[in-house]
Design a protein around this nucleic acid. Structure first.
Lengths: 266, 266
DNA sequence: AGCCTCTCTTGATCTGCATCATGGTACTGG
DNA sequence: CCAGTACCATGATGCAGATCAAGAGAGGCT
């Protein structure tokens, strides 16, 4: 049964829509149910969209943000072709972004952790160019883009911040391009681990001990490698005393060696 | 001798600045010399920044755009770390964007043809994250970003267009990521040729016959392959009757076969 | 013209990662 | 609690493209 995660009451009218149309059956129809979180009390506000806003501006932003029930593991947030309406901020959990190639394979283009923004690829064509799927139970805030646009025309700080967010996405994609084009399997994996470590640290979590939210398949897909190679690299790094790997649980034992293994590519 | 390409008069004060600081010695200091081009008469206006503007808005945009003498082949427009001031529109010629890895190698991240915009990666950190270099003699319009920001707060169409431009850059980078991660050498080369062909067609040039502005080295670098491989792929496609290759001069003999070779990946 | 340098082509060999194959381990649903 | 199904690890083998090597054009400078 389909229902709207932004309201945990089953909505009758959804039952009749075409199942494949995520935009109509999907998670982000506006509804009045409130999940009792606000940007002001959210401990991610320092690194998330509100970052650059004073409290009166924040109040305005608050009025347009939609919050809903968490997405379940493997649940789709949007997919390629979904009419573009909102960008999304991760409140908890993790998601992957990916696009499907013409021959049906999947290319993971990014992982999104709490405090990070996704969905901006949909702006240019008014439809999402990629898909986003929850890697684990994940709470997400939807920010309707037309409202955000109007708001940002009036709030220079917000406008600037949005430009910066998109610009950052571009530079990060370029780093990934470089990684894929120039680095060995070991360097790619090490770079990803360091990236996740850094992003954890940014939200006051341990930089040296964490649980990977994604599978080896997703890691391999993201890094342009096969699962087997990912497994081997993990084993190698573990044997070398750089990591302790227990399934998805990672401990970085030798930060410096890992940095070296990454070849400081990023 | 250093001089400002946006004014073909040598500027005294430039002589004293530090040579490595592109932002001060660089090509885009404002000056009053006019190269007698306007967006209104520019035949690229249909595909360039003015795309979404009415004529009164265009007039306003016109007032902030800086035009200068063409860049020579191999001349640098900006490089990594250059304080971010403007984004740029290509008026003629071609440029490559690239970033330098920690070990000094170069990763080409894109080619920019007439009517295309570059430099948006600088917004997030207020400094360019990549470099841009002319592949041949190239004329470029500089659009100071702070002026553009102010203008776009007042002109919703312009703001939207900027968001769209950046979003397009993101989706294009994601396509390149997919290409690098999933496709064979033949597919990558074929995809690039089709991309250039399409972009030529957009500006009313032949889609089947054109001159590549970039070297084999740059192509290989961009596609994550070696020069030798690029050469071999060109030879192979020529032997197969798909292309006629004469150095940088390309003729697409069998569009359909090329599309097939690209595996419709993009 | 003639020299030099840079770019491109083609061949021979090598190698990092893919692919194939197999077994182990950990969730998940009945 | 057990069966079924992901997910993960590790070994054996193959191959696309890198690397090494050598020459051929093409363009720029005196």
């Amino acid at each position: 049964m389909l229902y709207n995660p932004f309201c945990n009451i089953v909505q009758e009218d959804i039952m009749s829509v075409h199942l494949q149309n995520v935009s109509e059956a999907g998670p982000f129809r506006s509804c009045n149910h409130d999940y009792k979180v606000s940007c002001e009390t959210c401990r991610l506000s320092r690194i998330c969209l509100p970052l650059a806003l004073n409290s009166s501006d924040l109040e305005q932003l608050e009025t347009i943000i939609q919050r809903g029930r968490p997405l379940q593991k493997n649940e789709l947030l949007y997919h390629e072709g979904t009419p573009f309406q909102s960008i999304y901020a991760v409140r908890s959990g993790a998601l992957k972004g990916y696009r499907t190639t013409s021959d049906g394979r999947e290319q993971v283009t990014g992982f999104y952790l709490p405090g990070e923004i996704l969905g901006m690829d949909g702006i240019s064509e008014n439809a999402h160019a990629s898909s986003a799927r929850a890697l684990e139970t994940a709470a997400v805030c939807a920010i309707p883009f037309d409202s955000l646009e109007k708001l940002s025309a009036a709030m220079p700080g917000l406008q600037r911040h949005l430009f910066q967010l998109m610009s950052r996405e571009i530079t990060e994609d370029q780093l990934l391009i470089t990684l894929l084009s120039k680095n060995t399997a070991d360097e790619r994996v090490a770079t990803l681990l360091l990236s996740i470590s850094r992003r954890n640290a940014r939200r006051q979590l341990s930089a040296s001990q964490f649980r990977l939210p994604m599978s080896r398949v997703d890691i391999g897909n993201y890094l342009g490698l096969t699962v087997e190679t990912i497994s081997r690299v993990f084993s190698r790094l573990q044997k070398g005393g750089v990591l302790r790997v227990d399934n998805k649980e990672i401990e970085i034992l030798d930060q410096e060696a890992l940095q070296l293994a990454a070849n400081i590519a990023a």
